[in-house]
Write a protein that binds this DNA or RNA. Structure first.
Lengths: 196, 196
DNA sequence: CTCTTTAGGCTTGTTAACAATTTACACCTT
DNA sequence: AAGGTGTAAATTGTTAACAAGCCTAAAGAG
């Protein structure tokens, strides 16, 4: 059971990932408040959080604007940092993965499969992210998830693997199976080659 | 002129860095609101932001608690990510450093010197961070500062170089002089060896 | 005696009104 | 006509009241 603030944040984030707002656009608190049928408070909170996550640029007394997505070299650099975090957490927490944790990962994988079948990029990107989060949590990496999420967010805006849905799914299946089989090195290699 | 929200956020962050709140402690909105003489709104905003920055842990309907500082292996790992970002930004933007940018760095360096003379760890940590920010900005790395800041924040809670004030200052002088002399490789090496 | 229930207080979540700031544009001066 | 000035509209910032959720402890049932 989430708060309104969280629901609103998720909705706006989804729209940003889906590309409904063009880069540079100024978002108005009242406009979104009216649209979602809530007061400006939760909208403000969401703007603040999404600014921290890197989606929006915030200026005092002037509101927020949609940030430009990462491209080229910058994107690759951020992606490398993201992978480093995943590798570090999985390497460190591999032995403490529980059956319950593996089931959570399996569930996320199933959701990713469904998302891939719909072909909606925004949904796939979201499910992709959720899958990785489930792994990080299974490895007890909660302490670093926030940093990981920020890095990941910046890249969601350019989730550019249109059409490769089956390949995306397969790559994640590989990661899951390696985890399930307790083959650490294979899992790390699979994560390392998982390109987003 | 900053907003109340920003002032409050800075004040609470300073106290956290100074170690005035022990890890695990639950912070109350009303208590801080009364202490700073403002309403709960800006306090809430500050809590939200500081949670994103990694200082506080947020739970819906239950408020925030002070997070435990990073230690050992985790701290070294985060530190390595932080250095990678600095190296990337400086490497990429070295040639676009302006005279004005260098002056900003020099100003930050002077503030760091003053902070070191006071011997107050919280002040030194803050000035240290500001110095690095000035460099990143001079190199046009605004796009990545937010991620950098989040990584850096987690480490501020264990700024453990008590007594080495003169050494801290000297290391930063080295970085500055390399920038001023346009010696890129020397600057990168100096940043890489700047241990926090 | 132990466990469950429930009432009360305490804390956070949300709202709507009010204050402060920015922006746009008509107006005046030169 | 160019440029500055003032005013009104729009937008964000802050506040305080109200709503909703959580926690504790006392009361009651078994």
């Amino acid at each position: 059971m989430a708060s309104i603030r969280e629901e609103i944040t998720d909705k706006i984030r989804d729209e940003l990932v889906a590309g409904n707002f063009r880069a540079g656009l100024a978002l108005r608190e009242s406009e979104l408040a009216e649209r979602f049928g809530v007061s400006r408070g939760p909208i403000r909170d969401a703007f603040l959080q999404l600014s921290q996550e890197g989606f929006l640029a915030y200026q005092v007394n002037k509101g927020v604007t949609v940030r430009h997505p990462l491209v080229g070299e910058d994107r690759e650099f951020i992606a490398s940092l993201r992978v480093q975090i995943e590798l570090y957490i999985v390497d460190k927490g591999f032995n403490q993965i529980t059956e319950r944790g593996l089931n959570e990962v399996a569930e996320s994988l199933r959701e990713l499969e469904l998302a891939c079948q719909t072909g909606e990029v925004a949904k796939i990107a979201k499910a992709d992210m959720a899958f990785h989060v489930s792994i990080l949590q299974a490895c007890g990496g909660d302490d670093h998830i926030q940093v990981w999420r920020q890095l990941c967010s910046r890249m969601l805006l350019t989730y550019t693997r249109l059409g490769n849905y089956e390949a995306i799914y397969q790559e994640h299946v590989d990661v899951y199976q390696a985890l399930r089989s307790k083959m650490k090195d294979v899992a790390l290699a699979a994560i390392n080659s998982n390109i987003t």
